[in-house]
Simulated assay, not measured.
Amino acid sequence: MAGDGTVLTRRPVVAVLGATGSIGMHLVSAFEARGYRVLAVARKRSPLVAGCEFIELDLSATPSAEIARILTAADAPLMVNAAGGWLASLEENRLAHVEVVERLLGAAALMPAPPRFVQIGSIHEYGPVPHGAVIDESFEPKPQTPYGLTKLAGSNAVLRATRAGHVHGVVLRAVNVFGPGAAGGSFLGSVVRRLRELPAGDRLRLKVSRSERDFVDVRDLADAVVRATESAVTGRAVNIGRGEALDMRRMLELLVVEAGRDPGALELFSGPVDSKGGDWTRADVRLANRLLGWAPTTSVRQSLRDMWEAAAER
């Protein structure tokens, strides 16, 4: 009981897998802010998640039985998989997005009771869509890249395990993520790094495709994950995004403004670029609002400003 007489409800333990990544560290903060005890799991320790219980574990090399033992000992009935990221080869993607998921699901099947399992999937699981299309959950996934193919395989494994009764699973198919701590392997994350390293008076030349993409702030995504963990939604995929397609050239121009840099520091020219997805993404997020009571709240400019400032702090 709190000092004001309020009865405090003890929340269960949530295991955040991939806790030191660009998304995982925000999940740790979001769950702790809601009063959860967090078990952070990652390959290496990080001061970014120093305040919670931490287990140093390489999920890609740890047998399912050992993972099950650790999670059972921690009494963690909630699992959130934020492991993986922007990887180059098919083998790297398969290891991070398929094998790790299968090991986690194997562990879940060995636990005393089926855990709640939230899988952070990707909008790129749908593959390329026609320009102007609003992607809802009825779209048939047809990914063409190693990233999209392996993310879809991992998400499908979670949904199969849910049907088999091994987990109470839900997949959140997130659009491109930005905001503080953005992954260095992402396009915007790499631009922030290169701008910060740019000598005064120099110009950064960037090749930018004529693309429009949906983005969501990492803190809004973390809020969606917490809501999904607490919800009764199971056995389905739910899109998470802003619900708007943002012009990439305009995004970069706004980034320079929010960074307080001279607009002339960035020189953009058109051309084809390598991408993990197509040139158009816009998620229909009405299902997330209906099932989870979720909607994005962070403005684009705030996300860009905080991304820039967080890079300086790190």
Rank of each mutant, 00 (worst) to 15 (best):
A224H: 07
A82V: 05
G185Q: 14
D75I: 15
S186R: 03
L48R: 05
W294M: 08
R286K: 09
R213W: 12
G18W: 12
M307P: 00
E53N: 07
G181S: 12
G277P: 04
I67R: 02
L188I: 09
P263C: 05
E313N: 06
R10S: 13
D214V: 02
M79Q: 10
G277F: 08
N93C: 05
P263S: 09
E92R: 01
M307K: 15
V171C: 05
E91N: 14
V129I: 14
G278R: 02
A33W: 05
T234M: 01
G277M: 07
Q302P: 00
D247W: 05
A224P: 02
D4F: 13
L57F: 11
I123Q: 02
Y36W: 14
E258Q: 13
G264N: 10
A96G: 01
S211I: 01
R210T: 13
F215A: 01
G165A: 10
Q144I: 01
P263T: 03
F139V: 12
D202K: 09
D217T: 14
L291V: 08
D75L: 12
S22A: 14
V233G: 00
G24K: 01
K44S: 14
V300G: 08
A288D: 04
L105A: 06
R37S: 10
L95H: 06
V98R: 02
A164S: 08
T6C: 00
L39A: 05
V233M: 01
V273K: 04
K44E: 15
A259D: 06
A82H: 10
L17S: 04
R196C: 00
A312Q: 08
R193S: 11
V100T: 11
E313L: 06
L292C: 02
L291E: 13
L195V: 09
W308C: 03
V167L: 14
A224M: 06
T298V: 15
R227D: 12
L39H: 01
G18H: 11
A83R: 01
M307Y: 15
A182T: 11
H26D: 09
D220L: 13
S46D: 11
Q302H: 12
A153H: 04
T9A: 08
A224L: 10
V226W: 08
G293T: 12
S299T: 15
G278N: 04
A200G: 00
R250G: 13
V225R: 07
N289D: 11
E56P: 00
A42T: 02
H97G: 07
G235L: 08
P128H: 12
L152Y: 02
S89R: 07
P141E: 15
S275N: 13
L172R: 05
G201S: 11
N156C: 03
S29Y: 00
R173P: 00
V49C: 07
D306K: 05
A237K: 01
A283Y: 04
A183K: 06
M111E: 06
V134M: 03
A222N: 04
A288V: 04
E258D: 06
G24M: 01
A224K: 05
A108C: 11
R43L: 00
A288I: 07
R236K: 14
A157T: 04
R10H: 10
R242F: 10
R11L: 15
E137L: 02
G293Y: 13
E258N: 11
P141K: 09
